[in-house]
Simulated scan of single mutants.
Amino acid sequence: MSSGTTELAWFKSSYSGTQGDSCVEVAITEQAIHVRDSKDVARPAFAVGREGWGQFVRYASER
């Protein structure tokens, strides 16, 4: 993961609670979807290719 993730436009899902629950934030670029822990943004983020992210979303929506 590049150290440039701080310049990304991060956002949380509208399903995320306001009590500081376990949430993730995502940032979308042309190359990948970046994911990080919203409670600890200093921890390293990870990136998933757009195709892999699409597969994950399809799988999760079927559950």
Rank of each mutant, 00 (worst) to 15 (best):
residue 1 M to D: 12
residue 1 M to F: 08
residue 1 M to E: 13
residue 1 M to S: 15
residue 1 M to N: 13
residue 1 M to Q: 07
residue 1 M to H: 09
residue 2 S to A: 11
residue 2 S to R: 10
residue 2 S to E: 09
residue 4 G to F: 07
residue 4 G to W: 03
residue 4 G to L: 09
residue 5 T to M: 02
residue 6 T to D: 14
residue 6 T to F: 08
residue 6 T to A: 13
residue 7 E to Y: 04
residue 7 E to G: 13
residue 7 E to W: 10
residue 8 L to D: 12
residue 8 L to H: 11
residue 9 A to I: 08
residue 9 A to P: 02
residue 10 W to E: 09
residue 10 W to V: 14
residue 10 W to K: 06
residue 11 F to A: 06
residue 11 F to H: 14
residue 11 F to E: 14
residue 12 K to Q: 11
residue 12 K to T: 09
residue 12 K to E: 14
residue 12 K to G: 04
residue 12 K to A: 05
residue 14 S to A: 15
residue 14 S to K: 13
residue 14 S to P: 14
residue 14 S to R: 14
residue 15 Y to M: 10
residue 15 Y to F: 15
residue 15 Y to E: 10
residue 16 S to V: 05
residue 16 S to W: 00
residue 17 G to T: 15
residue 17 G to K: 09
residue 17 G to V: 15
residue 18 T to S: 07
residue 19 Q to F: 11
residue 19 Q to A: 08
residue 19 Q to T: 12
residue 19 Q to Y: 11
residue 19 Q to G: 12
residue 20 G to I: 05
residue 20 G to D: 04
residue 21 D to A: 10
residue 22 S to E: 15
residue 22 S to G: 11
residue 23 C to M: 06
residue 23 C to A: 08
residue 24 V to I: 15
residue 24 V to E: 06
residue 24 V to L: 09
residue 24 V to N: 04
residue 24 V to K: 00
residue 25 E to H: 03
residue 25 E to Y: 04
residue 25 E to A: 00
residue 25 E to Q: 10
residue 26 V to S: 03
residue 27 A to I: 00
residue 28 I to R: 11
residue 28 I to P: 01
residue 28 I to L: 14
residue 28 I to G: 00
residue 28 I to Y: 12
residue 29 T to H: 02
residue 30 E to H: 12
residue 30 E to R: 08
residue 30 E to S: 12
residue 30 E to K: 11
residue 32 A to N: 09
residue 32 A to W: 06
residue 33 I to W: 06
residue 34 H to K: 01
residue 34 H to Y: 14
residue 36 R to A: 00
residue 36 R to L: 01
residue 37 D to P: 05
residue 37 D to R: 02
residue 38 S to T: 10
residue 38 S to D: 07
residue 38 S to G: 06
residue 38 S to E: 05
residue 39 K to T: 07
residue 40 D to M: 04
residue 40 D to N: 08
residue 40 D to K: 00
residue 41 V to R: 07
residue 41 V to G: 01
residue 41 V to S: 01
residue 45 A to G: 02
residue 46 F to W: 03
residue 46 F to A: 02
residue 47 A to L: 01
residue 47 A to P: 01
residue 47 A to C: 02
residue 47 A to W: 04
residue 48 V to Y: 02
residue 48 V to W: 00
residue 48 V to M: 07
residue 50 R to G: 11
residue 50 R to F: 03
residue 51 E to G: 11
residue 52 G to H: 03
residue 52 G to F: 03
residue 53 W to G: 02
residue 53 W to T: 05
residue 53 W to L: 04
residue 54 G to A: 05
residue 54 G to L: 02
residue 55 Q to M: 07
residue 55 Q to A: 15
residue 55 Q to S: 15
residue 56 F to M: 03
residue 56 F to V: 05
residue 56 F to C: 03
residue 56 F to D: 03
residue 57 V to M: 03
residue 57 V to Y: 04
residue 57 V to R: 03
residue 58 R to I: 09
residue 58 R to G: 02
residue 59 Y to I: 09
residue 59 Y to K: 13
residue 59 Y to F: 15
residue 60 A to C: 03
residue 60 A to W: 08
residue 60 A to Q: 04
residue 60 A to M: 07
residue 60 A to I: 11
residue 61 S to D: 13
residue 62 E to I: 10
residue 62 E to F: 10
residue 62 E to P: 08
residue 62 E to G: 14
residue 63 R to T: 13
